[in-house]
Design a protein around this nucleic acid. Structure first.
Lengths: 226, 226
DNA sequence: AATCCATTCAAACGCTTGTTTCAATCAACT
DNA sequence: AGTTGATTGAAACAAGCGTTTGAATGGATT
């Protein structure tokens, strides 16, 4: 936005905290990247810790603006809503067209919560979780316990998260593939079909790319392609 | 095993590296926990980095011994094999009856690979991956591409991993539940059914606990209960 | 022009880090 | 008993850390 020292510090801090983690990142390195004096951190913020929290808060704000939730046509089939949401999740995570450190920073926070965690959960995770659960509830039978609905939701998110967090290992394991990452759409299709089939709301198609009938080649505009 | 200084250093290092990460862990803290002199690290190893690598290598050795692969009766149904393997995975991760830092250390390495990563993948991940893929191949139709088989495997592992890595968030999100973690068997049942249903190799049961018919109340001895 | 206030800057603070040094120790072998 | 070689010990090392200080800067207000 504006090119103040404070803003440049937040951006630089976010990038370096995300890359190296809190402890390994140094004030001096951050200030060098931000083209600011070392004392600026303790002037504009209350110290390293406060700068970190500010960076996390800023990250989730940006990320929400970047890839907003899709506005579902109210009559869109629940299965297509699911595909759209999963598409957004993948796009928020793997799409390379924006600084990667926003998501990275938040995931660090979620895996090892500090004081900034509750903010991330309330402002970022919870809305997404609510949306997912609402969609799933349209697809699920009525006689399930809340606990079961949670687990189904977790199984869905888990797949998306896995492809982000463990991308390096995936490439090492698959090695036959020439180091190239799997296409984003293919992943979203797979996760959607896998999930739908698991809850009995779709054909037992096992993976993307070979849909036996045209029954489920959903392709929904995911957010802001145009 | 033996109570040498070297071994005590590896144990202490593993625990602290797992808890705090490489950068945040200090030699002095490790040595204090190991009841060793600070110089011992540079005497028995070549420095902090080498101690870290040694700890990672030791961790995977132990973990393999702790919860070995189940010896499947050769005629065990593939679906039950899957349940058994998923049970072992959960047990290796969430079972509290052993020092937790082994797995923790390896996951840190996998999420952010350093020089010790290839060893972890080759010695620990690959065997598990091969076993899983062998079981899945028995359940899957023959006309799938390798890529599709990989994705199905990933979707399976992802669910298990999720419940470990994001346990803190899960508790915050579910909050209705009184902070108590979900029972291990319930998780393993859910993941197994979810996966089987997704690939069309099981009833479209949606979650654990409400199997409509007795058709799939698999319960396999997972490893070394007796 | 003078005052004020926010901001920047270079330097130093005290502290902790990983590593090195070298004397002290101890068991084993001649 | 004496010597050797491996191990431990306390202290010091230079380097980096987060933070603080107090003077310099620059633009707006009086």
């Amino acid at each position: 936005m504006v090119d103040t020292t404070k803003q440049r510090l937040i951006d630089a801090a976010g990038a370096i905290f995300a890359e190296k983690g809190y402890e390994a990142a140094s004030i001096r390195e951050i200030c060098q990247l931000a083209d600011a004096n070392i004392a600026a951190v303790n002037y504009h913020f209350a110290g390293k810790r406060a700068l970190y929290v500010a960076a996390v808060r800023h990250a989730q704000c940006c990320r929400q603006e970047d890839v907003p939730f899709p506005e579902f046509p109210p009559d869109l089939a629940p299965a297509d809503q699911l595909r759209a949401l999963i598409g957004v999740m993948f796009e928020r995570m793997l799409s390379p067209h924006r600084p990667q450190w926003h998501l990275e920073l938040m995931l660090r926070e979620l895996a090892r919560p500090t004081e900034a965690c509750v903010a991330v959960v309330d402002d970022y995770i919870r809305p997404m979780s609510d949306t997912l659960r609402a969609i799933l509830n349209q697809l699920l039978p009525a006689d399930l316990t809340e606990e079961q609905r949670w687990m189904i939701g977790f199984s869905t998110v888990a797949q998306v998260l896995f492809y982000y967090t463990h991308q390096p290992i995936i490439r090492v394991l698959m090695q036959s593939r020439d180091g190239e990452a799997l296409p984003l759409d293919q992943l979203a299709d797979h996760v959607t079909r896998f999930t739908l089939a698991a809850i009995g709301a779709g054909p037992v198609v096992v993976a993307a790319g070979v849909s036996p009938a045209g029954s489920h080649s959903v392709k929904v505009a995911s957010g802001r392609d145009a």
